[in-house]
Simulated assay, not measured.
Amino acid sequence: MTSHQPPLWRRAVAELLGTALLVSIVVGSGIAAQQLSPTDVGLQLLQNSTATVLGLTVLILVFGPVSGAHFNPVVSLVDWALGRSSGSGLTLPELGTYMVAQTVGAVGGSVLANAMFEVGTSISSKDRATGGHLLAEVIATAGLILLIFALAATHRGILAAPAVGAYIGAAYWFTSSTSFANPAVTVGRIFSDTFAGISPDSVPGFVGAQLIGAAAGLGLLALLFPAASRTADDVVVPHPAGKGS
């Protein structure tokens, strides 16, 4: 089949840049919120979540036509898993490339945010790995996976940008963990000892919970939208079918 997608290297650059900018938005707005409202944690969360909703929506619109705007290893992992039965979605080498690009981008985004606010890059001391936080990550990730792939399965992928932005914004508030729901972002946020950071000790639990959530989301998807595997090429934003090289 003639390739209609951008080559893999270009998609990897899009994933790296998109994830870097996403983390810089999350961390940067967290730093700004902490500086602007130092005594009001609720207002800090409102400022942080609002910036994330708007920024994520824009990033999906910009990078979606290039790479699918996954910005998230569990989204890429589920895309690969779904596509095995239909020959769609990411291949295994593409999956590995996406995951590496996303993780490198996330770390770079955290460093970039620190630099913009002239805050030294240091390892976060913010402990988040309580039982409630881990349960929240399972729920947040399962909901995110179900949303993204349900939109693709029902040919409503064009709504992904506002829908995913809205979901993450809501999940900031209805989950105790503030909805990381993303292993790459979780790793990137280690490198900012601010309102938005997470301590390295909390990361394995968070990533494990996110993987469990992804599996739960995949199970719900199979139950509710059995045709989802045939639309793996349309995640997150629809882009032409075919494999890059």
Rank of each mutant, 00 (worst) to 15 (best):
T2C: 10
S3G: 15
H4W: 07
P6T: 09
P7R: 14
P7E: 12
P7F: 10
R10Q: 14
R11S: 06
R11V: 03
A12P: 01
V13S: 00
A14K: 01
L16P: 03
T19C: 02
L21W: 03
L22I: 04
V23Q: 00
I25V: 15
S29D: 02
I31Y: 08
Q34R: 13
Q34I: 09
L36T: 12
T39C: 07
G42Y: 15
L43R: 15
L43S: 10
Q44I: 11
N48P: 06
T50D: 06
T50A: 12
T52Y: 13
L54V: 09
G55D: 11
V58P: 00
I60G: 00
L61R: 02
V62M: 11
V62W: 05
V62F: 08
P65D: 05
F71R: 03
F71N: 02
V74N: 00
S76A: 09
S76Q: 02
A81V: 08
A81H: 09
A81G: 10
G83P: 03
G87A: 02
G89Q: 02
L90S: 05
T91D: 06
E94F: 05
E94C: 02
L95W: 06
G96M: 11
M99E: 01
G105N: 01
V107Y: 01
V107P: 02
G108D: 01
G109F: 00
G109M: 06
S110E: 03
S110N: 03
S110I: 03
V111A: 11
V111F: 05
V111H: 00
L112D: 04
A113I: 04
N114C: 14
M116T: 11
F117K: 01
I123E: 04
I123K: 00
S124H: 04
S124V: 08
K126N: 13
A129Y: 00
T130K: 08
L134K: 00
A136R: 08
E137I: 07
I139E: 10
I139V: 15
A140P: 06
A140V: 07
L146I: 11
L147M: 15
I148Y: 13
I148P: 09
F149V: 08
A150T: 14
A160G: 07
A160C: 12
A163Y: 06
A163W: 10
V164K: 10
A166Q: 08
A166L: 14
A166P: 04
Y167D: 04
Y167L: 15
A171E: 15
F174I: 14
S176D: 15
S176A: 14
F180R: 00
A181E: 03
A181F: 08
N182K: 01
V185F: 02
V187Q: 02
R189T: 04
S192N: 09
S192I: 07
S192E: 06
D193Y: 03
F195T: 10
A196N: 07
G197T: 04
G197C: 03
I198N: 00
P200W: 05
D201K: 09
V203W: 05
P204I: 03
V207A: 08
L211W: 10
I212Y: 12
I212P: 03
A214R: 04
A214W: 06
L220V: 14
L220Q: 09
L221Y: 10
F225W: 13
A227H: 14
A228P: 08
A232N: 05
V235K: 01
V237H: 07
P238I: 04
P238C: 08
A241R: 08
G244Y: 04
S245R: 13
S245D: 14
